[in-house]
Design a protein around this nucleic acid. Structure first.
Length: 264
DNA sequence: CTGGGGACGGGGCCC
DNA sequence: GGGGCCCCGTCCCCA
């Protein structure tokens, strides 16, 4: 999975970054102490506050749905006509249309994307952004769509990543705007439940326990990884020596360090 | 070097 | 269409 816009943590990542710089002065909501469930729920503002329009350019989204938003098909990969792709970067007056300024993009999209197309995105976009990794299956599968002409493409104004579904784009943009802010340390997250998981690091709450050893975890994924340690046959297996590992990262380390080749 | 834990991320699915 | 949740995954650190 590409972590295209994630900034690799620096050597001093243990230091508290000034997360407030990532936001304007009015985050969608924050968690405040104390952290018991009742307060967590109480800290969540009503839907009208949670509404993404609080920080996202509503007019932009609305305009995306407007008839002038021309459908873009992957059939446009053919070099005959270059249809316009619905692209937020092309809406130059977007910032003036809302009350709050969005945070500065982590890495401004190359100007070459200002007039790009869906086809160029597939052909060039991922090459231009190696951090994006391989073309997602959802997008790569579009070329085989029955009627690709009927599809629209929505581009992220921050990283130019393209989405077929507007909802997916909105969710993605939250990873840029980071509207959920921890009331204790100021760290920002894209989604409320991510913040909730982070809050557990402050509270020490560990709701996920191992049925084998009763060890508790704050994160379900970490419990899942832990459960692998109780298994004789791990999930990830080296193709060379058949040794199994509880985590893919361990398998990768094993392979990178040079597998001896013999089964263990 | 290896194994494991902690923290966190994104996309997809379901309601 | 939006939000919550799940799953899969990565990165970092430590024993």
């Amino acid at each position: 999975m590409p972590r295209s816009f994630l900034v690799r943590k620096s050597a001093c990542s243990r230091l508290r970054p000034n997360y407030s710089e990532l936001h304007d002065s009015s985050p969608e909501f924050t968690f405040q102490q104390p952290y018991d469930q009742a307060h967590l729920l109480a800290a969540i503002p009503p839907p009208e506050v949670l509404n993404t329009t609080a920080s996202l350019p509503t007019l932009i989204w609305d305009s995306l749905l407007a008839p002038q938003a021309q459908p873009v098909g992957w059939a446009s990969l053919l070099p005959r006509e270059i249809p316009k792709v619905v692209e937020l970067t092309s809406l130059s007056d977007e910032d003036s249309g809302k009350g709050s300024q969005p945070p500065s993009p982590p890495s401004p999209a190359p100007s070459s994307f200002s007039s790009t197309s869906a086809s160029s995105l597939e052909a060039d976009g991922y090459a231009a952004f190696p951090g994006l990794g391989p073309l997602p299956k959802q997008l790569s599968g579009l070329s085989g769509a029955k009627d690709p002409r009927s599809r629209k493409a929505f581009n992220c104004k921050y990283c130019n990543k393209e989405y077929v579904r507007l909802g997916a784009l909105k969710m993605h943009i939250r990873s840029h705007t980071l509207p959920c802010v921890c009331g204790t340390c100021g760290k920002a997250f894209s989604r409320p439940w991510l913040l909730q998981g982070h809050v557990r690091t402050h509270t020490g709450e560990k709701p996920f326990s191992c049925s084998h050893c009763n060890r508790a975890f704050a994160d379900r994924s970490n419990l899942r990884a832990h459960l692998q340690t109780h298994s004789d046959v791990k999930k990830y297996q080296c193709k060379t020596c058949s040794r199994t590992f509880s985590r893919m990262s361990l398998l990768h380390k094993h392979e990178e360090s040079g597998c001896s080749g013999g089964p263990r």
